[in-house]
Nucleic acid binder design. Structure first.
Lengths: 226, 226
DNA sequence: GATGCCATGTGAAATGGTGCACAAGCGCCT
DNA sequence: AGGCGCTTGTGCACCATTTCACATGGCATC
């Protein structure tokens, strides 16, 4: 009986798998909306752009078993993945930094749809504090701890300039937030108990730039040697 | 003498290394601004948040040798990394989709600073076409090929809703763009010759959600078993 | 000029992830 | 009831990446 509820989530799921779960989930929800009730690993793989064996292995980590000869039950998979990805709990987020990016993020539908409603916005600039953005009044960064406490936020999004990012992160950590998504183009540090992910827009372009440049150089070299 | 210019870029740099180069570059530029002329792998590693041996191996892929007992020359490293990341060539980008996110991206300083000036914006919505956003007149998505040809864009950014993303990507590919950064929350496909990177904001939060949930479950289980 | 210190550069082991290939199992059709 | 075709679940080998550990070699000091 302790068995029934307990050991499901105990074994950790590999990071690479976790990163794919939201992709699977999107594809599955789409299938469900289309009235599809069953899906094979091959189909789900093509929807997610990965290998079919990879899908099967990922599902085995979730203990989301399918039926041999048939496939996986779509709704069941949706349930299992949702459960793994936070148990369907809606985690409100607070956005620090209401510049261009912060405003865009506060209006981004995908957050709400994904179970992460924006509970509040804060900024350090007094000129911005008090203004209403996407239905939220911007509050002072000094109210951050209060805001987090009031709304029960556990996730913080940092959309400040690079120079302010570490301070923003520290404030979030001090306020009790345990997960942080950092959009500022700088390396920030957090205590071990806090989970940090970095999204770096300029970096992504630079990586693309490398491949472009490298293709060009390789092409030239091909012509030279071939 | 053919040796001097040629074979530097021939051996491919591992993807994991390429992904770190922009991070190193940021740290190095900061050091250079502070008047620091020499840096050890240990210091650079702490700036980038990685292991020092990793830094040294990464630099060896670039043939950016340091001096034993001393470290690496900051300006030299900046030059080598910039060279690897596209040779200092400025690649203008075109943004498809001028919604909340597209507008924010078009105003994002980091792109210009990183050598990726926004050369144009396009949208499918006639209500948006013709409006001026961040100094650019929004043009129709039908003009995309012309715009790419005029400006010599090689990079496209997709900031459309999910439903329009594949069409946007196809248009970019048809227009001759060879690198695409997709912000739409959906899996898109491109020909092999085109390089695609996916940035998925909601997915990032869901990954954070997994870890948060998992920590909570592990904590409960700790109390139960310990 | 020799010696000691220090940081690089790299071989090799450990780690983590991917994909193949195949056995096992389920349902359908005869 | 039996056989067949389809799909899951997984052992295994391969590959990329990380990390350790140490030999190598330059610089400064004496």
């Amino acid at each position: 009986m302790a068995d029934a509820a307990g050991p499901r989530q105990d074994e950790p799921i590999p990071d690479a798998t976790v990163a794919r779960l939201p992709i699977y989930l999107r594809g599955l929800v789409e299938l469900s909306d289309d009235g599809v009730s069953t899906v094979s690993s091959v189909v789900l793989a093509s929807l997610a752009g990965v290998n079919a064996a990879n899908v099967r292995k990922d599902m085995s980590y979730l203990h989301a078993h399918g039926t041999r000869g048939v496939g996986y039950e779509v709704d069941h998979l949706i349930g299992e993945i949702s459960l793994a990805l936070g148990g369907g709990v809606r985690s409100p987020v607070v956005i620090v930094g209401v510049g261009n990016l912060g405003r865009a993020l506060s209006r981004y539908d995908g957050f709400v749809a994904g179970g992460f409603p924006v509970a509040g916005l804060v900024d350090a600039d007094p000129a911005v504090v008090g203004r209403k953005v996407a239905g939220n009044i911007v509050r002072s960064v000094e109210d951050l701890a209060d805001l987090v406490a009031e709304t029960g936020c556990t996730v913080g999004i940092v959309a400040t300039p690079a120079a302010a990012a570490q301070v923003a992160v520290d404030s979030l950590v001090a306020s009790g937030v345990s997960s942080i998504l950092n959009f500022a183009p700088t390396v920030v540090t957090v205590p071990d108990r806090v989970d940090l992910r970095q999204v770096d827009l300029a970096t992504e372009l630079q990586i693309l730039g490398y491949h472009q440049h490298h293709r060009a150089v390789a092409g030239r070299s091909d012509r030279a040697t071939g």
